[in-house]
Amino acid sequence: MKHRINTSLLPTLVGASALFLLAGLIHGNRAAAQSVDWQAYNEETLHADILPAYAHFASEAQGLAEASIALCQQPDSDSLAHTRQAYRDTLNAWQGVSHLQFGPVTYLMRNYSIQFWPDRKSIGRKQLQAALALPADSTFDGEFFHQASVSIKGLPALEQLLFRADALDRIQGSGVDCHLAQAIAGNLSAMAGEIYRDWQAQGKRLLSGSGDAAEDEAESGAVPAFSVDLMKSLVEPIELIRDTKLLAVLGKGANSTYPHRAESWMSEQSLANIRTNLHAAHALFKGDSAGLEQLLRQRGEADLARAIEQHFALLDEQLQPLGDSLVQALDSHYAELIATTESLKTLDLLLGKAMKALDIQLGFNSRDGD
């Protein structure tokens, strides 16, 4: 759903001057502040966001695995096109849940196995080349993936196999390309299904917490650990999008960009990924009846909640005209991309203030050092 914003508010939301004006908005009257119902937020998010998102990812990954099998059985241009679309659908589903870097997705490093990125040392490319040099009768089974690097177990490696310029020739060739692509897609589907089943089985336990720590939280009124993880899932990706998905590619100017640093550049989904990331973050903020927006209003922070909502809408307006490919947008929309990074910076600051308003200490950023 496309959000519309009141364009008369843009001057107060964009640029350095916005920070001073917004400072006045977010320190309003807290006389009507109420206690925050974290349990309602956690339960709604688990059932309305987390479980459906992982179910969708598992379904799309299964479709990709089936498409890859058909591709190897009939390696022609139509089958390749179908598999590429199945890949994009799976990638989009992952981008809608990749912000949730806690719980079952972290077991056995499945989060990194699904998408090892950014890969600043080109580990994935080197490992993939080594795998492609194996004999044609090589077996890519569970034991292979148990021993393999996380860099060739998921989406980035599969993207290289499916979207390289000579992909069809190599898939039709006598090498291991198609069998490896099929195996990676199958491994990806297995991981997605396992994560969804683990959330189904363990979601209630993760939601409620256990042991002395959970009891201490309840007695002290501290923010539950599950809630803190959800807040990290909302706040941390905004910085990742700005710094790693955009600024690292934009470089120092329109004539000094780094297109191949872009996430999913081969499949031309870099900006599509970002839009999906922001829609997922917005869902965590907005909720249905117990979203972060409502929690802020309970604390007497209606102006702050309104400013955050307006900025999500602004980013949607900025990104919609730019297409799916960041590489293509670099040539004709560089100024707009820079403006988007500024909007992301302001949104990041606003969300940081929201954390303070709700007495949340996010602590260590799990994405630092990637």
Rank of each mutant, 00 (worst) to 15 (best):
R261V: 03
L161R: 08
S77P: 06
H82L: 10
G211N: 03
A283E: 06
A148Y: 13
A254L: 05
G186M: 08
Y41D: 06
F20P: 08
V235C: 08
G193M: 01
M266V: 00
G291M: 07
L91M: 06
Y196Q: 09
R88D: 11
Q200C: 07
G154V: 02
A70I: 03
H282R: 15
K126M: 14
Q320N: 12
H260T: 14
T12C: 10
G193H: 03
Y41W: 07
I274C: 04
D359K: 11
W38G: 04
Y54S: 05
A290K: 13
V223E: 05
E268W: 08
R299Y: 04
L22E: 13
I274W: 03
L128G: 00
N29P: 02
A283Q: 14
L240G: 00
H47M: 02
A248W: 03
G154K: 03
E66C: 14
S366C: 03
P321L: 02
V327T: 09
R275L: 04
R88K: 12
Q127G: 05
F116I: 06
A58R: 05
Q294C: 06
R275K: 11
A357T: 03
A254K: 10
S151P: 01
M231F: 14
C72G: 01
G186L: 06
D37P: 06
S227L: 10
G154W: 01
L304I: 04
D331K: 00
E236V: 05
L271I: 11
N111E: 13
A157S: 09
A213C: 02
R88F: 13
Q62F: 02
L322P: 15
A222W: 10
E342L: 11
T341G: 05
A183I: 03
Q147I: 08
Q318L: 15
Q200Y: 11
C72I: 04
Q202N: 07
A307M: 11
V235K: 09
R164F: 05
L347I: 08
S256Q: 14
A218P: 09
Q95S: 07
Q101L: 14
S267H: 12
I274M: 04
T341N: 13
E268P: 05
L13G: 04
D229A: 11
V235F: 09
T276Q: 09
D49N: 12
R170C: 12
A305R: 08
T106S: 13
F285K: 01
F140Q: 01
L295A: 09
N277M: 06
A48W: 02
D76W: 00
S332W: 12
V249F: 06
Y334Q: 01
G300V: 02
N187K: 02
T83L: 06
Y41L: 07
D348K: 06
Q172M: 12
D216L: 15
S289L: 07
Q200F: 13
A183D: 00
E309T: 08
M231C: 11
L271F: 14
S189C: 07
I123N: 09
T244C: 00
A213Q: 01
G352S: 09
I241K: 10
Y41S: 05
R120K: 13
Y334L: 00
I69F: 09
A290M: 08
S289N: 10
T106F: 05
G142F: 00
T346W: 06
G251N: 02
A165F: 08
S270P: 01
L161G: 08
Q361C: 00
Q95R: 15
L19E: 15
S264F: 15
P237T: 10
L292H: 13
M231L: 05
S174K: 15
A32K: 07
